[in-house]
Simulated scan of single mutants.
Amino acid sequence: MRQSPNERIAEDAIKAWKLLAILMAIIPFLLTLTLFILAYIFTFSYWYGIGLLAITLAEGIITIFIIPKLRWRRWRYQIYDQEIYIQHGILIVNRTLVPMIRVQHVDTKQGPILKKYGLASLTISTAATTHEIPALLEDEAYALRDQISELARVEQDDV
């Protein structure tokens, strides 16, 4: 069996994913608040709201404090001359090999959350699929984009 890749994404990815999880947790909390207001207006049992609040808090704790750390620990990648090796997943670990000869183009992208932490994601496109290496340091993402582009170009010229 092939050895796991040893390159990691930036550790600030944890902070970025936590912030995203907090923003996404606002919706369930608003729904829970709405249920409490409806229980007050229509005088039905608060137990529905309490049950939903318990579920929402558990989901918030898991997605904000546990998942980002686990995700960061599992994310690895390695760039070789002939292929790109990507490994990720928490319960189910995905290992993907992308042959350089199949790479059509490489992009970097950066939303407001990634920009806040000086991070960027690298997207590798082939004819059939798109692969992403998330939350790299900006300079590292740009350097990898150029390196993969050059390696893919060399592979194309050799064919």
Rank of each mutant, 00 (worst) to 15 (best):
M1A: 09
R2Y: 13
Q3C: 04
E7V: 01
I9V: 12
A10L: 00
E11T: 10
E11I: 10
D12H: 07
D12Y: 06
A13C: 05
I14H: 13
K15G: 07
A16C: 08
W17Y: 11
K18D: 05
L19N: 07
L19P: 03
L20W: 09
L20K: 09
L20T: 10
A21Q: 09
A21G: 08
L23I: 06
A25G: 14
A25P: 13
I26A: 15
F29M: 01
F29V: 04
F29H: 04
L30H: 01
L31W: 11
L31D: 07
T34A: 15
L35S: 02
I37S: 12
A39S: 15
I41C: 10
I41V: 15
F42K: 14
G49F: 10
I50K: 04
L52M: 12
L53Q: 01
I55Q: 01
L57R: 04
L57Q: 01
L57E: 05
E59D: 15
G60E: 03
I61F: 12
T63M: 15
I66E: 12
I67E: 06
K69I: 05
L70Q: 02
W72L: 00
R73W: 00
Y77A: 00
I79Q: 01
Y80L: 08
Y80G: 05
D81V: 00
E83S: 06
I84C: 07
I84K: 06
I84T: 10
I84V: 15
Y85Q: 11
I86T: 12
Q87H: 11
H88S: 14
L91R: 03
V93I: 08
V93C: 00
N94T: 13
N94V: 09
R95Q: 14
T96H: 05
L97C: 12
L97R: 12
V98S: 13
V98R: 09
V98A: 13
R102I: 03
Q104T: 03
H105R: 10
V106R: 01
T108A: 03
P112F: 12
P112Q: 11
I113C: 05
I113H: 01
L114K: 07
G118H: 04
S121I: 02
S121E: 05
L122G: 08
I124E: 04
I124K: 01
S125E: 08
S125G: 02
T126D: 03
A127Q: 03
T129I: 13
T129K: 08
H131M: 09
H131I: 14
H131Y: 14
I133N: 00
I133L: 02
P134R: 00
A135W: 01
L137H: 11
E138L: 14
A141R: 03
A143C: 02
L144I: 08
R145C: 02
R145M: 06
R145T: 01
E150G: 10
V154F: 12
V154D: 11
Q156R: 15
D157L: 15
D157M: 15
D158C: 06
V159L: 14
V159N: 15
